[in-house]
C-alpha cells in the first residue's frame, strides 16, 4: 500500500469508527460534553465570574485531552475484547495509519462538544480569528499528545480490568488537577512547579493566551515565561508520546 492509500485507510477508520457511530447514536455527543460541562457549571455557580472564561477554555482542552482516554479504552477494547486490532495488524495497514485513524475517530467524537465550548468562548471573551487559529492549533497538538499516549498505554496490558483504572488515573491527572479550568496563578506560589510536571499545563497556558486571558505562571526568567517555552514543551512531549506509540507500543505481542 502506498502512503496515499495508508492516509486514505486512516480516514476510512475515522469514518466507520468515529463518524458512523456518532451519526447512529447522537447521545454520544452528550456523553462527551457532560463531564466538562459539569465542571464548568460548578465553576459558574461557585467561582467568581472572572474565572468563568478559564472554565470555558478548560472545557475545550478537557475534551481534547479526554480523546486520549477514549483512545486508550477503544483500542484496548478492540484488541482484547473484540480481537479486531489483530485483524488490522495481519493486513497491509501500517501502525501509523491505524493509530491515526483511531485518533481521528476520537477527534470526531469530541468535535461537537469542543464546538459548543468555542461558541460559549466567543460569547464571553474577545476571541479573534488569530486567537481562534492559535487555540485550534493547541487543541490539535493536545489531541495528538493525548491519543498517542492513550494508544501506547492500551498496548501494555493484557486485561481490560487493568486498563480502566489506569486510564482514569492518567487522564484525570492530566486534565482535572492541572490548571485547565482555572488560571495557574491560583496555585500557591510554592507549589506552581508541580503544575509544570503535567504537559497539559503547557497546553492550558497556551490556550488561555490564545483566548486573551492572563494568569500564566511567571518566573522572572524571560525564556521560561515566553509562550514559545510552553509550545516547545508541549511539542516535545507530543513527539515523545508519538514515538512511544510508534516504536515502543506493542503492535505485536512480545
Amino acid at each position: 500500500m502506498t502512503a496515499r492509500s495508508q492516509a486514505y485507510a486512516a480516514l476510512r477508520i475515522c469514518y466507520f469508527n468515529g463518524i458512523l457511530p456518532l451519526w447512529r447514536s447522537p447521545l454520544l455527543i452528550a456523553a462527551v460534553f457532560l463531564t466538562p460541562f459539569s465542571f464548568l457549571f460548578f465553576l459558574f455557580v461557585i467561582a467568581p465570574r472572572a474565572l468563568f472564561p478559564y472554565g470555558v477554555v478548560g472545557g475545550v482542552l478537557f475534551t481534547a485531552l479526554f480523546t486520549g482516554s477514549g483512545m486508550l479504552n477503544d483500542c484496548a477494547y478492540l484488541r482484547l475484547e473484540r480481537q479486531l486490532q489483530q485483524v488490522f495488524v495481519a493486513s497491509p495497514l501500517r501502525p501509523l495509519a491505524y493509530i491515526l485513524g483511531m485518533a481521528l475517530s476520537e477527534l470526531a467524537f469530541s468535535i461537537p462538544a469542543m464546538s459548543l465550548f468555542l461558541v460559549i468562548l466567543f460569547l464571553v471573551t474577545p476571541l479573534g480569528g488569530l486567537g481562534l487559529a492559535a487555540l485550534i492549533g493547541v487543541v490539535l497538538v493536545t489531541w495528538l499528545m493525548a491519543t498517542t499516549l492513550g494508544f501506547f498505554v492500551s498496548t501494555m496490558f493484557s486485561q481490560l480490568r487493568e486498563i480502566w483504572p489506569i486510564g482514569t488515573l492518567i487522564f484525570s491527572i492530566l486534565s482535572i488537577l492541572p490548571p485547565i479550568f482555572y488560571p495557574a496563578t491560583e496555585i500557591p506560589a510554592a507549589w506552581r512547579w508541580v503544575a509544570y510536571l503535567a504537559p497539559s499545563t503547557y497546553a492550558a497556558q497556551l490556550a488561555d493566551r490564545a483566548a486573551g486571558l492572563g494568569g500564566q505562571i511567571t518566573t522572572g526568567i524571560p525564556a521560561l515565561d515566553s509562550p514559545f517555552f510552553d509550545l516547545g514543551m508541549l511539542v516535545a512531549v507530543t513527539v515523545l508520546f508519538g514515538s512511544a506509540a510508534l516504536y515502543l507500543a506493542r503492535w505485536r505481542e512480545p
Partner: peptide, 18 residues
C-alpha cells in the same frame, strides 16, 4: 508478510455499530 495474509482470530467479534 502482512501484505500477503488475512486472519480470522479466535473468538473475534465485530464493530457493534456496523
Amino acid at each position: 508478510v502482512r501484505a500477503q495474509i488475512g486472519l480470522v482470530p479466535q473468538e473475534g467479534k465485530l464493530f457493534y455499530h456496523l
